[in-house]
Computed example of a mutant assay.
Amino acid sequence: MYCHDEPSGLRAIIAIHSTALGPALGGTRFFPYPTEADALADVLNLARGMAYKNALAGLDLGGGKAVIIGDPTTDKTESLLRAYGRFVQSLGGRYYTACDVGTYVPDMDVIARECDFVTGRSPENGGAGDSSILTAIGVFQGMRACAQAAWGEPTLADRRVGIAGVGKVGRHLIAHLLQDGAQITVADVNPAALDWVRRNHPEVAVAESADELIRTGLDVYAPCALGGALDDETVGALTASVVCGAANNQLAHPGIDKALADRGVLYAPDYLVNAGGVIQVGDEAAYRERGGFSFERARKRAEGIFDTMLTIIRLAGEEGVPPAVAADRLAERRMRDVARLRGILLPEGARELRG
């Protein structure tokens, strides 16, 4: 759905990929896309990723996403957010929104003044607050599982981890890794983010660029910024033997997962390991009328990403496919099985699932 409100300057697109498992849930990205076509391509890819993420996380939620076209530092206003909330409301609950790149908990509180289908709100407004905390926990658990498979122990102690992007999730991830005894190098295009790292974690090394980072002697590479981080050039230069990060849509094009596997690199499917945030906002939405959000309940579920990652690694080995393919198959199987249970008829082998 294209959303345009001239008085506020809102230009947005909402994409629903699947409601086979339940209402579509996915965050709202506020980003200065060069063209509307770029925004459309991004929202469609992100919506598909959310469908698979929610399915693999065991949530009774479908996949959707929204993008607001603009610079959040200059274009974000109360009237724009409220206008956007009215568009979400008009879908009648088929789509639930939450935070993403460029949107934050206070923004969700504003959107919720016009809309019932908002999660990721502030605790004082009945919400769960910052979802990046559990996102980082899930990524860390995915890394631990990869370490178990690669080196025989579920720890990053004395391993060099390179984090590309130290925003909301990357900062929490640094803390978990340091506590586990890892050595860390970071890169970010935002000088302020690197200044934060230098002030708060002087023991963390800083690379000049993401390009330099991937060529550093790494054990684990963690893309934690925007999508498309893994392309042919990156894979060719990568020194790490494990890739596990928080960014969505890390694979720049089909076939990158096979290229990684051919080089002996263990890739943790992004939508599996970064599902901690959606687990949190999903808990908030599901339990709003039944006692409210429980951080401990959501944390326990996010920590289960460790076991799911090990399952994906095992299935990939048994089926002779990259882990990304094994994860897709498991998610598609769940969507298909539940859709049939609910009486939503889908053709055999359907990959594009719609409620």
Rank of each mutant, 00 (worst) to 15 (best):
E289D: 15
V101A: 04
D231N: 14
L21M: 11
S8T: 06
R314M: 12
L341F: 15
G92N: 03
M1F: 14
A331H: 06
T311P: 09
E203N: 07
E78D: 14
G170A: 02
R29S: 04
A298N: 05
E318R: 15
Q280P: 03
V186P: 11
Q250S: 02
M309C: 15
T155D: 03
E153R: 15
W196T: 14
L21V: 09
L226E: 08
A331I: 02
L272N: 07
A57N: 03
L353Q: 15
S79M: 12
A193C: 05
G277D: 13
G282A: 03
P202G: 05
A285Q: 04
I214E: 12
G138T: 01
I13F: 14
Y221L: 07
R329V: 11
G292T: 06
L178S: 00
A205V: 10
F306E: 03
G355T: 00
P32K: 06
R351K: 10
D75E: 10
M1E: 07
S90G: 11
V206Q: 04
L213S: 02
S132I: 03
D116R: 14
G255H: 05
S79A: 15
S131P: 15
E289R: 13
V265A: 11
L134K: 10
R288N: 10
E352V: 14
Y84M: 04
E318L: 09
A339C: 00
A55S: 00
R121E: 06
D38E: 08
L25M: 12
V139M: 01
R329K: 13
A229N: 02
A205N: 09
G317V: 12
E6H: 15
A164N: 13
P323D: 05
D231K: 04
F30T: 08
D42M: 11
D262T: 08
V273F: 05
T103E: 00
N200L: 10
P191I: 07
D38A: 12
F306D: 05
L341V: 15
Y96G: 06
I305R: 02
E296Y: 13
D116W: 14
D75H: 14
T73I: 09
P191M: 00
G349H: 11
G264F: 06
G355H: 00
G282K: 03
G138P: 01
